[in-house]
């Protein structure tokens, strides 16, 4: 069985744990570096990216998660998680983990009153995925090795780059586990390789 961690410093942690269990993974929350050790994959949840980033630095998780990704272990970032994974953040000099070859724009759909939900086709995942966008970012650019999996109004909202997966919305706020299943398959693939 695949063991997948959910970074649990802040944000929607329980929801991801529940959905990972539902698709058949063993799911554990991760607050410390040593908890990464025997994991096959990691989810970085939605929350406040500035808060999660500060806490990651404080507890040595920024370097540890970067090494985790560089060792070929799959990482799935949702909303804040996508911002943390990105190589480039619009309007900021520094990225956080900088692992995934994407450029993100923060709060790019507007403030909370502009937050929305919509059904979207996601390539290889679903024809009608219920996507919940909350003060969401979008991806301005995906690197050459990457693949765009979904767009909303011409803006990229799901992408995969090698063993990294990013969604601008919150699959964890729905009952739809198909994106988690997709990520679990990525984890299995990576483990075989």
């Amino acid at each position: 069985m695949m063991k997948i961690g959910v970074l649990a410093l802040q944000g929607a942690v329980i929801e991801h744990l529940r959905m990972l269990e539902e698709v058949g993974a063993t799911a554990v929350s991760v607050k410390r570096v040593e908890e990464l050790q025997d994991l096959d994959g990691l989810v970085i949840p939605g929350g406040e990216s500035t808060t999660i980033s500060k806490l990651m630095h404080k507890y040595g998780l920024m370097d540890a998660v970067r090494k985790f990704g560089e060792a070929g272990k799959p990482i799935f970032g949702t909303c804040a998680g996508a911002i943390l994974l990105a190589k480039e953040i619009e309007g900021q000099l520094d990225a956080h983990l900088g692992l995934m070859d994407i450029k993100v724009a923060r709060n790019a759909f507007g403030r909370q009153k502009d937050s929305f939900e919509v059904n979207l086709p996601v390539v290889g995942v679903a024809a009608d995925y219920p996507a919940v966008f909350i003060r969401a970012p979008y991806l301005k650019h995906v690197g050459e090795a990457g693949q765009v999996l979904a767009k909303h109004e011409d803006k990229i909202v799901v992408a995969r780059d090698r063993h990294y997966l990013a969604a601008a919305f919150h699959p964890e706020l729905t009952e739809d586990t198909r994106l988690h299943k997709y990520f679990l398959d990525m984890v299995k693939e990576a483990k075989k390789a």
Partner: peptide
């Protein structure tokens, strides 16, 4: 059609604040 101000979007915003100050 994109919908704003749904329960899921409004409650979801608070879910993202969990574990925080």
């Amino acid at each position: 059609m994109a919908q704003v101000g749904t329960d899921r979007v409004k409650r979801g915003m608070a879910e993202m604040q969990k574990g925080g100050v």
